[in-house]
């Protein structure tokens, strides 16, 4: 068996009395586009943050690219790209300056850096926006720039937390074409979303409710669990079942 891109075992995170993620056990293969679904507050962001080394698990363990996130979070950080739910761009820097900063922070230098910057700008079609302040970009462009920053060091894994929230449908479609292109090239993508047409595009899905897993499998498999209805129906029914 090949090494999993992400593997969690009984991953749990508590905030005081609240258990945000409960006994999560998952395995994501390399090159998968894996969707994480669930209502607000179900623990998606908390899960991703633990996988990125931003939050320490209260219990259980997780490995990312074969590295234990609790034992060696800094090693994990070099291998992953992360787009936070609240996009963390420097709004007072231009597109080019944001890219240049993250390229430098990820250790790119000189000609290699310039080459990679040009490549990423072309890949995400940012050429005409390079001189614009990030704060003045529209939502869709901000999203693309944030993705570009997360991609700059060619990470093996991408964690995208609601990357298309609040973006118009055309821009979302373009964004997903980019995600598929990345997966084709071997990048593992873990993405959260509230849009069902996006969930349909994932290879496999995990549905969460109140911090734990309520369904796992391909979109068709998850839909079949509640009698072959649409994914949206499955989502609502499974969630209601869980909350009962």
């Amino acid at each position: 068996m090949t090494q999993a891109a992400v593997e969690t075992r009984n991953l749990t995170r508590r905030f005081g009395a609240l258990t945000a993620v409960r006994q999560l056990t998952l395995r994501i293969e390399e090159g998968e586009v894996f969707g994480l679904l669930g209502p607000n507050g179900s623990g998606k962001t908390t899960t991703i943050r633990m996988l990125c080394g931003l939050l320490e698990p209260s219990e259980g363990r997780a490995t990312v690219a074969g590295i234990d996130v609790t034992a060696a979070p800094e090693q994990v950080k070099q291998r992953i790209g992360y787009m936070a739910q609240k996009v963390g761009l420097y709004e007072d820097l231009t597109t080019a300056e944001n890219l240049d900063f993250y390229a430098g922070i990820y250790g790119l230098r000189g000609a290699a850096k310039q080459g990679r910057l040009a490549q990423v700008a072309a890949f995400l079609d940012l050429g005409e926006r390079l001189g614009q302040l990030a704060g003045e970009l529209s939502g869709g462009w901000k999203q693309r720039l944030a993705l570009a920053c997360a991609l700059i060091h060619e990470p093996a894994l991408l964690f995208l937390d609601e990357p298309t929230a609040g973006v118009d449908p055309a821009a979302r479609r373009r964004f997903w074409r980019t995600i598929h292109a990345l997966a084709q090239a071997g990048t593992t993508v873990l993405v959260t979303t509230h849009y069902m047409e996006e969930a349909e595009q994932c290879g496999r899905l995990a549905m969460m409710s109140r911090g734990h897993l309520i369904a796992l499998g391909s979109p068709a498999e998850v839909a079949a669990q509640v009698g072959g209805r649409t994914l949206e129906d499955a989502f609502v029914i499974l969630q209601e079942r869980d909350e009962r």
């Binding site: 990125c52 080394g53 931003l54 800094e74 950080k77 070099q78 992953i80 992360y82 936070a84 609240k86 996009v87 963390g88 761009l89 420097y90 709004e91 993250y102 922070i105 990820y106 250790g107 920053c149």
Partner: peptide, 12 residues
């Protein structure tokens, strides 16, 4: 501003 989260997820 939320940029710290993005910053501390890098190897700096």
């Amino acid at each position: 501003r939320g940029t710290l989260e993005q910053l501390i997820v890098t190897p700096i």
